[in-house]
Structures are given as structure tokens and as C-alpha cells.
Amino acid sequence: MNEFRAKYPLAVLEHLLAVYGWNGAVFYDIGCAFNMIARNSALGPMIHALNLCLMVGAFHSHAHNCKCQLDWHLLYVHGTSHTEGEGCEHIFLASNMLAQNTRHSSKFHRQQAIKQHFAFWNADKYAALGNFLWNHYSSARSAIHTLTAKLDILKLQFQLTDADFERFHEQECSYLTNFKALPVQDQVLIKYIHALDELVDKKQVPCFYYLHHLTSF
């Protein structure tokens, strides 16, 4: 992302910081790269003072490499709970039908349809907000109760502590950071598979020509 394009997400970020303040979290498709841009910008001191945390949503994280996921995936960030960080995608999904309905509309009617859609969408979401909060609260309590019990069983079975999970994460990060080349054994196995593929290809060539000549008669 160049400096010219970065001004748009930076403007959005400044507004979010002004509205929500302390201990905020922002999910961004390229939050890993944008984090450095934001902290080196004029917003850097505000981001640091308000303890803003940038992350990559669960859907887009899988397009990033393993090391990036360990650093920026919300699975490894405390306080993210059950959120997947893809709120915009839910909105896009709800508005997809507008495309085919307004494809041949005039500019006025297209904008009118979009405005009406989001007005009704917002009203529906606001009306269901109480149930939304209660259902998610109940789900979170149930998950904490169930998963904590299962985790305690696994910790007892494998003689693990909470510190071990943190250590496993640090070890994986360290391994990927220092990873330069595949182990020799893995390189040999890969070359062996490639050799087998080449052998199969070469064995298939005469067969192909033989079938070709047979069908040409």
C-alpha cells in the first residue's frame, strides 16, 4: 500500500480512535502491513496511547503465510472472543442482491434502492439487537463452560499448563522466523517425488503415441 492510498484507511482509523477510544481493535484485510504504516504516521502516538490492536480477519488470514497468521490472526489475540472480524463481509452478503436488481436502473433509482436497502437493513438489525446480544452472551458463557472443562481434561492428560500453550506459540513463531530452508531429509523426499512424477510422465509418452497411432487407422 502506497502513501497515497493509505490516507483513506488512516482517516477511518482516526475517526474510530476518536469515537471508541481506549483498547480498541480493528480488523483489516492487510492489518499486518497497515500496522506499520499507521504507527509511522501522525496517528502513531495516538495509536500507542489508546492501545489500539490491529488484526487480520479469520476469512482473509488464510491468504497470509503461517508466520503472519501467528502474529495477526485473531485466534492468537486475547480478547477477541468468538468474533471472526469480517463484519463488512456480512454486510456485503446482505447487499449482493442489489446488483442484479439495479443493474439496468438509472443512476437515481440505483442510489435510491441502495439507500432504502441499508435503511431497512439498519432498522431490522437495530430491532433485533437485544436478541443478538443475548444470544451471543449465552453462547459465550456456554463455550467458556464447555471448553474450559475439555481443556482441563487435555491439560491433565498431557501434563500441560497454561504457560505451555504460550511457549508452544513462541516456539512456532521462532521456528518460522528462523526458517531458511527445508531440512535435508525433506529436500530428498521432495526430489524423490519429482523423480517419480518424471518417470510416470516418460512412461506415459510411448503409451500416448501408441494409442494415437491406433486411433489413426
Rank of each mutant, 00 (worst) to 15 (best):
A128S: 14
P9D: 09
L182N: 06
S61W: 02
A58P: 09
F179L: 02
P183W: 11
N101M: 02
L189D: 08
Q157E: 05
L16A: 13
N101H: 15
Q157H: 02
S216V: 05
E86Q: 03
S61I: 15
P183C: 09
G31H: 10
A163P: 04
Y175H: 15
H78V: 06
L98R: 00
W134E: 14
F132H: 13
H145Q: 13
I193V: 14
T102R: 03
R5L: 12
V19P: 04
V205P: 01
I193D: 08
I30P: 06
A33T: 12
F27N: 03
Q69E: 04
H194F: 03
T177P: 01
A38K: 09
N51P: 04
A49R: 13
E14V: 02
T102I: 08
T80K: 02
H78G: 06
E89M: 10
F108A: 07
K180S: 15
H194D: 07
N122W: 09
L54R: 08
K7H: 03
Q204C: 02
C66W: 05
Y20K: 11
H15P: 01
K191H: 09
N101S: 11
G44C: 14
Q159S: 15
I153N: 00
T146P: 00
Y137N: 00
E84P: 04
A33I: 00
L98W: 01
H117P: 06
F34E: 10
V77R: 12
E166Q: 01
A128K: 15
K155I: 04
F165M: 02
R39M: 14
C88M: 11
E86C: 14
C66P: 06
K155H: 14
L54P: 07
A123K: 15
R39T: 05
G24H: 04
H82E: 04
K203N: 10
K107E: 13
A63C: 05
D162G: 03
E14T: 06
F158V: 05
L151A: 03
C66H: 06
M55V: 08
N101G: 10
L16D: 06
S216G: 07
L54A: 05
L13H: 10
Q185A: 15
A181W: 03
Q204Y: 00
S105F: 13
H82A: 04
C66M: 03
C207Y: 13
R141Q: 07
